[in-house]
Simulated scan of single mutants.
Amino acid sequence: MSKQTGKISGGPSPLRAKIGRDVAARLDANPGVKRARVDAAQMYTYENFLSDTECDALMALVDANSRPSTLLAMSDDPEYRTSDSSDLHRWSAEVLAIDTRIADLLGMPHENAETLQGQRYAVDQQFRAHCDYFHESSAYWPRMKETGGQRTWTAMAYLNNVPEGGATWFPRAGIRFKPKRGMLVIWNNMLPDGTPNYDTIHEGMRVLEGTKYIVTKWFREGAWLREAITTYVSQGKDAPAA
């Protein structure tokens, strides 16, 4: 995840524009999905996307393999991102099932999806305002181009209710989402012409009471997984971690 500024990072892209249209059309046609009442970005919610059992299982996985969250670009602010993160094992049965459901919901190729990442926020932890897309003028951009290129859509699910604080706030779009167990929030990081959309800047607000658990899945414009996807779950074997 990178710290972002107001500078436009990348220009129009016919491929990203098409991805935006195709995913939006699919979500608009799904009766379980609601489009957010904002004009600045394509944003959706899907309540009860994850069951209580799935939420509990994912929270346990996050707790079992957490590490301090990191940034792609350095920040001078030690309070910029203070959560813990966990890259969940893509090929485990419980994660693979959820991965597949999210990709199928958006109609995105499974290989374009980054590995599902869990985040945990304790009291006073936060993630200050940032965008999910990559700066194409940055030093890290060549590495991102080699692994699928630009991030297009984000899908983020809340795994628990938070007594106070912890909302996801989009200040330029003018909307905030309070953590709601099982709810999926989906947004397009691009404008209709495929240019990165600065109005998707958002903040994981400070948790004031309780602990906040989420999982996030980012989709690239191209294949993030470069090798053929082979799952060994049905054979009782472990597949290589992505």
Score class of each variant (00 low, 15 high):
P240C: 11
K18V: 11
R81M: 02
P179F: 02
E111D: 09
G20L: 13
H130W: 00
A223I: 12
R37T: 14
R143I: 11
V123P: 09
S138W: 10
P196N: 02
F219G: 05
L72Q: 05
T152V: 04
L225I: 12
V215I: 14
D77Y: 01
S92K: 08
T82G: 00
G204I: 01
D56A: 07
S85C: 03
K237S: 14
D132E: 03
L58Y: 05
I229K: 15
D87F: 09
F49D: 06
E203R: 03
A122W: 11
H135M: 03
E203L: 09
V162K: 07
K7S: 10
A93F: 14
V207A: 00
M156I: 02
K34C: 15
R151D: 04
Y80K: 04
A17S: 10
L159Y: 11
H135S: 10
T231R: 08
E47P: 08
Y133L: 08
L106F: 07
Y46K: 15
V62Q: 12
A241R: 09
I98C: 09
A113L: 05
A93R: 13
T5L: 01
G210H: 10
I98D: 07
R206V: 03
P240E: 15
P240R: 05
E227L: 12
T5D: 03
V38L: 15
T147D: 07
H135P: 11
F127N: 02
A228Q: 14
H89C: 12
K180E: 01
A155W: 05
S75F: 02
L61R: 15
E209V: 11
R226P: 01
A97N: 13
V62E: 07
A241P: 13
T211W: 06
H89D: 12
A36I: 15
H202S: 03
R206F: 01
P12A: 08
A36T: 13
C55D: 01
I186F: 10
M108G: 04
V123C: 09
F219Y: 08
T5F: 01
V123A: 12
D124E: 05
G166I: 01
L96T: 10
W141V: 11
T211N: 14
E221V: 02
P192M: 07
